[in-house]
């Protein structure tokens, strides 16, 4: 009897529009208030590894958006059937499957890109952001918001990745996407590329500065830590 009542209640609530304010927030939040890298400080490992140049960072960002969105969608669809005791394993299997698909597809249809990224595509499996979103959001959400949340977080991660990569490639090699931006005249005047920017440590500095800038601008974040 009570079940029937519940079902009625569900039907009675008006259907939420696809891009309601709440859903849009899922997409935009990860860019600022809830950025996976600068606020939650997740996924740092790959942010250090693939950001020496902009191009690999870009492809990595796209791959993570894909994996994050579809893993969230899949887990949200399965959420009521997943045995609680093995839910992390199920999440991992879903992520690993998607990453393998991305990896194989890149190898078959974008060979040059897959060569460029080499092991890092496989390492998306270990990216804490993906699993973090599955555990924190997709396990308790409907598929559509979960999908949006996945895209939002993937993009939030990707945005930071690209900003860091732009800084590192520009100051470390004087190029962006391989195009020389610093004219030879400056080099002959004594300017030298900063080799430190190409080392993983430089990504830490850049991310640290980004966090600093973000917090001094967005006071909401100051007390969270």
């Amino acid at each position: 009897m009570s079940e029937v009542a519940e079902k009625k209640a569900v039907v009675a609530t008006p259907r939420e529009p696809l891009f309601s304010t709440k859903n849009r927030k899922l997409l935009t939040d990860p860019f600022d208030d809830n950025n996976p890298i600068t606020v939650q400080v997740l996924g740092i490992c790959s942010a250090l590894a693939v950001t020496t140049q902009v191009y690999p960072a870009l492809v990595m960002a796209i791959s993570v958006v894909f994996v994050c969105a579809f893993a969230n969608l899949a887990i949200a669809l399965m959420r009521k059937g997943i045995p609680p005791r093995i839910r992390m394993i199920v999440q991992l299997v879903v992520i690993a499957t998607l990453v393998t698909i991305v990896d194989q597809m890149l190898k078959a249809f974008a060979y040059d890109v897959s060569k460029e990224l080499s092991v890092f595509v496989g390492l998306i499996i270990t990216n804490c952001i993906v699993m973090g979103r599955l555990e924190a959001f997709a396990m308790g959400s409907k598929p559509w918001p979960a999908f949006l949340d996945g895209i939002g977080n993937g993009l939030g991660y990707g945005a930071i990745l690209i900003v860091v990569a732009v800084c590192r490639e520009f100051f470390g090699a004087g190029t962006i996407l391989g195009y020389k931006l610093i004219p030879e005249a400056i080099y002959s005047a004594g300017y030298v590329d900063n080799g430190v920017m190409l080392t993983p440590a430089a990504a830490m500095f850049v991310i640290g500065i980004l966090i600093w800038i973000q917090r001094s601008r967005n006071t909401k974040l100051v007390d969270i830590s």
């Binding site: 693939v50 020496t52 140049q53 460029e116 590192r168 490639e169 470390g172 090699a173």
Partner: peptide
């Protein structure tokens, strides 16, 4: 030359 896993930029 080509490589499998050398550091980009280095």
């Amino acid at each position: 030359f080509d490589h499998k896993g050398e550091t980009p930029g280095l």
